[in-house]
Structure formats: C-alpha cells, structure tokens
C-alpha cells in the first residue's frame, strides 16, 4: 500500500500535487447584506497517490471546494495550486480547460445534469479517452478503450449505445466515473460518487479505484458522507462544518476515536442493528 506508507510521515521529498491555502468562497446572498460564506479558510494538501476524504454535513462547502479546484467556480480569497500552478484565477480559455481536464477530473454529485443528454454513453466516455491519447490513435482504438472502461464499472457493451435518460441513477453515476477514469488524470475529485450504488457495485468501484492506484500514480479527493466508505478508501480525512475544517487527521485514527463533536455525532448516527432514527436537538431560537 503506497499511500498508507505516507501517512503521518513528513513526506520528505514529496511535493503535494494539490495545495489549498486558506481558501475562501463567498457567494452573494439573496439580499445585499447577507452574503453566503460557503468556504472559509480551508487548507489542505493532496499528495501524489493518496486518497484524501472530505466529509461534513450538508451545505458545509465540500462541493464548492471541488468546483473551485476544477475551475467551475472562482476563488474569493486564498491560494489553490495544482503542481505549483495557481488555479485561483479560473479558466481563461479552451486550451486552459483542456490542460486542466487532463490533470484533474471531476465526478459530479448529480451525474444526470453533468452528462450531455444528446450524446450516447460510448461517445461520452470516448470523448474523454480522446483527451489523453495522441493523434495517432484510431477511432476504433478509442472506442475499444471506452468499452473496456465501461465494462470495468459494470456496464456491459449494450450500454454504449444508450442515452443518459435510459439509464438508472446508479448506472449514470458509473458513466460519470468511467468518463473521469477515461481521461487518465493525475487527480480525480469524486463528489458523492458511490452514494447511489448498491453495496455490491459500490464494492466493485472501490476495488477498481484502489487497483488503478496500485498500477499508476493517481490521487483521489473523495467527498462522501459515508464513513464506512471513507474508512475503506482514504488514508487521511478532513471534516468540514459550515465552511470550515473542524477536524483532520489519519482516517483510521479519527474514526476509531473521534474527538470533535461533529465527527462524533456522525459516527453515532450510522445505521446499524438496533439503531432507530431520532431527531437532533434543535437550538432554541
């Protein structure tokens, strides 16, 4: 386990591939004087060949961090670099966009709106294969590659001909994962990417992600609220609450003995035998 060896060490000689330093994102609110502070002084590093998990309550800013990293959202304040290149300014042109896409791929939280409804599944994945293969590669080879990747996420050949609306929720999510893998990037941001999958397919995808990491260098920024999944896939994790990082550390240690109240409440609310749903105490206001 490559990534595991890096845990907790000073990582002397390894440069992080992604660095976020006191990132902030402020959205204009519905009225002038209540802006939404979605991300507030968030700092983290993502190293080559590691999986860093971001967990946190709904609305805590996880997706906004991811969107800034892939250039879909501008950075209000702070610094965000990929291999030392600043991403703070956002994408300026098509060449930038292509270069960024080769480095960082993003599996969206809601795959339906992120897939082009008029493109067949095979073409969606094929286009992404085309991002990293050279000009010498034939159309046929690109197609074969796309089919192979679809197969690895449990979608057989017949799916290549289908359109996104003809797929189930979990099948679409797997198309989004296949598209990201096809570009063969250095960093993949997975935003709730396995949430809509049953345990068996989920296991297949998690195994696939770790196989890819065993074969070559790839880093995952893995956004999830499923602590069991986070425990399986990540070496380190950060916990966000209301835009801020409130807890961070080695995943196994943090989960075994959660210190922060929010991390603790997360652990306590995981359904298990004998568990019953209860309402949280609401603040009197």
């Amino acid at each position: 386990m490559n990534g595991a060896e890096l845990i907790g060490t000073e990582r002397i000689g390894t440069e992080p591939i992604v660095v976020a330093n006191r990132l902030r994102k402020v959205f204009p609110g519905p009225t002038k004087d209540d802006p939404v502070i979605a991300v507030d002084e968030v700092s983290f590093e993502l190293y080559p060949n590691e999986c860093l998990a971001i967990v946190g309550e709904s609305g805590s800013g996880k997706t906004t961090v991811a969107r800034m990293l892939v250039g879909l959202e501008t950075v209000t304040e702070g610094e965000l670099t990929v291999r030392g290149d600043s991403r703070t300014k956002g994408v300026k042109n098509l060449a930038d966009r292509r270069r960024w896409a080769r480095e960082v791929q993003y599996v969206f939280q809601d795959p339906y709106s992120s897939l082009n409804g008029r493109q067949r599944i095979g073409d969606i994945v094929g286009t992404s294969v085309g991002l990293h293969v050279g000009a010498g590669v034939t159309r046929r080879e690109v197609q074969d590659r796309a089919l192979g990747i679809l197969d690895s996420v449990g979608l057989g050949q017949s799916f290549a001909e289908k359109y996104p609306h003809q797929l189930s929720g979990g099948q679409r999510q797997r198309v989004a994962i296949a598209r990201a893998l096809a570009a063969d990037p250095a960093v993949i941001v997975l935003d709730e990417a396995v949430a809509a999958l049953d345990v068996s397919i989920q296991a297949q995808i998690l195994n696939l992600l770790s196989d890819i990491r065993a074969e070559r260098d790839v880093s995952y920024l893995f956004i999830s609220h499923d602590l069991a999944v986070v425990n399986q896939i990540s070496e380190r994790m950060i916990v966000m609450e209301q835009g801020r990082v409130v807890d961070a550390g080695v995943t196994a240690e943090l989960l075994a003995d959660p210190q922060h109240p929010y991390t603790r409440s997360l652990r306590a609310a995981v359904p298990r035998p004998g568990w019953k749903p209860v309402r949280r105490e609401r603040l009197a206001s």
Binding site: S58, G169, A195, A196, L266, A269, P271, R279
Partner: peptide, 21 residues
C-alpha cells in the same frame, strides 16, 4: 421515496427518517 437520503449525511438522514416515522 427514491433514495431520499443519499445526498445527506447520517445526522440529517436520522432527522428526515424520524420525521417520516
């Protein structure tokens, strides 16, 4: 309810399920 809580963390899920109950 088609996976009504997939996008929620477990504490919010607990809230929602308790209300449905």
């Amino acid at each position: 309810a088609d996976e009504p809580t997939t996008a929620l963390d477990v504490t919010a899920q607990s809230d929602v399920m308790a209300i449905l109950d």
